[in-house]
Amino acid sequence: MIQLIVNGQPQFVPSLDSETDAGTTNDARLNIRQLLEHMGLQGKRIAVERNGEIVPRSQFDQPMLANGDKLEIVVAVGGG
């Protein structure tokens, strides 16, 4: 398990099985797509910020999530 802070709330997500390609710790990291699936947000129109930096959708498949990462996941809502 790793702990992320998602939208200000602690979120525990299972870390990846290291049997696939776990040569380095980085390879075993979760990517954003997996996190979104874990949270039931796959296919939603959202944008993601990790530790204050935008994560472009093109990078959702890159293993990057580390223990303690702070994420913001946002949607468009009604507003003036």
Binding site: V6, N7, G8, Q9, M39, V74, V75, G79
Partner: peptide, 17 residues
């Protein structure tokens, strides 16, 4: 439109704005 955090408990089937 406003930009807000996703409601983590929300029903994934709900339509979005």
């Amino acid at each position: 439109v406003a930009i807000r955090r996703t409601n983590l408990g929300q029903n994934p089937e709900e339509p979005s704005l």
